[in-house]
Design a binder for these strands. Sequence first.
DNA 1: CTGTTAGCGCTTTCAC
DNA 2: GTGAAAGCGCTAACAG
Lengths: 343, 343
Amino acid sequence: MKTQHVTIKNIAAELGLSVSTVSRALKDHPDISQTTKQRTQALAKQLCYTPNPIALSLKSQRSYLVGVIVPEIAHYFFSTVIGGIESVADACGYSLILVQSGEQLSREEKVLGHIVNLRVDGVLASVSKETNSYGHFQRLLDERIPLVFFDRVADSLDATHVTVDDFRGAYDATKHLIAQGCRSVAHFYGPRNRSIFRSRHDGYRQALEDAGLPFRPQLVVEADTLEKGTAQTERLVQQRIAFDAIFAVNDFTAAGAMLALRKAKLSVPHDVAVVGYTDAPTAKVLTPSLSSVHQSGFEMGQQAMKALLRQIGAEDRLPAERIVLPAQLVVRESSLRDLVTIK
Amino acid sequence: MKTQHVTIKNIAAELGLSVSTVSRALKDHPDISQTTKQRTQALAKQLCYTPNPIALSLKSQRSYLVGVIVPEIAHYFFSTVIGGIESVADACGYSLILVQSGEQLSREEKVLGHIVNLRVDGVLASVSKETNSYGHFQRLLDERIPLVFFDRVADSLDATHVTVDDFRGAYDATKHLIAQGCRSVAHFYGPRNRSIFRSRHDGYRQALEDAGLPFRPQLVVEADTLEKGTAQTERLVQQRIAFDAIFAVNDFTAAGAMLALRKAKLSVPHDVAVVGYTDAPTAKVLTPSLSSVHQSGFEMGQQAMKALLRQIGAEDRLPAERIVLPAQLVVRESSLRDLVTIK
DNA sequence: CTGTTAGCGCTTTCAC
DNA sequence: GTGAAAGCGCTAACAG
């Protein structure tokens, strides 16, 4: 089915004017007489005329489209970031083309190529867990296509990054667990090729060090999903590796760990205190409710889109920015041993 | 910053050919000589030429863009639907323009106008809770812009709808609760102006009737968020309205109810059995784990996009379709009183 | 004050 | 087998 939209030409014909006169009348050009303007604008409104953005794009060499690439939309954090991006895009006349990499490098390369071919004015990207080569992103830099990374950034690239202060978030979480009396804090981490996960690991380690606690490699395990959180916790328990706290890279990993702890008849927070990361809505409804490091996805999205607009608007290539947002530990039942203070 | 893409003109100049010859050579037109084709295609590949979709759109009067409007991206169910939409869109050369209504009619009208102005080839929509007038959607129908609703449909419009069998899902959930021995099943429902919520209500009521149980209006309460789930449960308890089960319109409402039940020292499922709707990942990690009616968002997205493509491809307006996907009750601990069977 | 013309990138008759 | 020209919708330099 093809839809017939009203064009400037229709209006010109109707009014016995030339298209250029109509074009100018519609944008209040000073040359045009009041009467012509009024007649034109009235008819345009009556016919519900809206300029064809495709024609505009061809002319202006700008699509007013930005490509957004995320690992998975169905992650609470990413969807809040998209909300933030949309809020400023919308306010500035931009629309979002959304694609997912599905955490796969091959798909990431493919969809990135796709949105570039679409002639988006810029790209906002959060990298897949798997990604370890950056040629596909470097190409955008080479072609001077504005590019901003958020959350999962491409560490090695000279591009603008927006992240939360992962080191600090992890540091605070670990310090809090130690303050609750925990002496053997385990860390469940994500792929090391993502700097956000490395930063969280570093923050964890620094907090141990500052507290004079030993770093025990066997307490640092790879687990970044619900299932892995469960499996690794079961393994630690079975292997009788002593631990009295878990700091997990995300909330679902923490939730998975809590499932295993319950099965093993270990009480949270008394036997094992748990802190997650992200502060998804799920954190509030777990039993016990889950302490977590809150990240404002919405603000991250806004900052990323604003940074992108700066680049789009600039004449020349701007120096890369590093925007770091604060992380905020939210303490709930899962890590609070002094239960008296819980409402 | 403006990016310079390679055009057909660049290639023509380089090769000393006309643009029309290059155009034909690139698409293997039979008129063109083998040598010309090879030279052209080789250079195109070398220069990483890709046709400008904006020029193509202007010419073909097709944008290969579809607008997707959802109430909130940050809802697990909607994000899985988007995944399904993307999978078929991608396979068919379409890209998604994503917008959110934020559950507000005014914003829905605005963003819908926006994507229509963008000249999308079609629109996929899930309506806000607030929406009670449909003029903005009717306009698309009038202008013969392909339109498919999913999940939250516009009941009164003669448009294609994709839904899950909400009546059946609710019926099965309620029947299951009754089979577990519950005699006073409460229902927490969403806005009645959405047919999906009405269908769930009707399924609930039918199951009561079929079991010979009375319908008690005071057990049917409006609650469709975590907070309302908590508040309404507290109210029922305080007002000493007896109930031994809750069937909630979504998982977070169920989770909110469970929070209140725990505070009131009521055990789930023994004092009150609970079933949710959607089967979000959160259902699995609650304590007790939450029984829920599973809906396949991914498949819904695929079906909706396929239906839209049928409309886009059709010469004339197609009759409205009503596509209904099955709902599947997933029983977990929150509603299973015979705990022996739980692993 | 308004019209003519050219051009954004591409396809597609129509000529030669 | 290849090129010239027109046109998709719109803007803007250039004429009157």
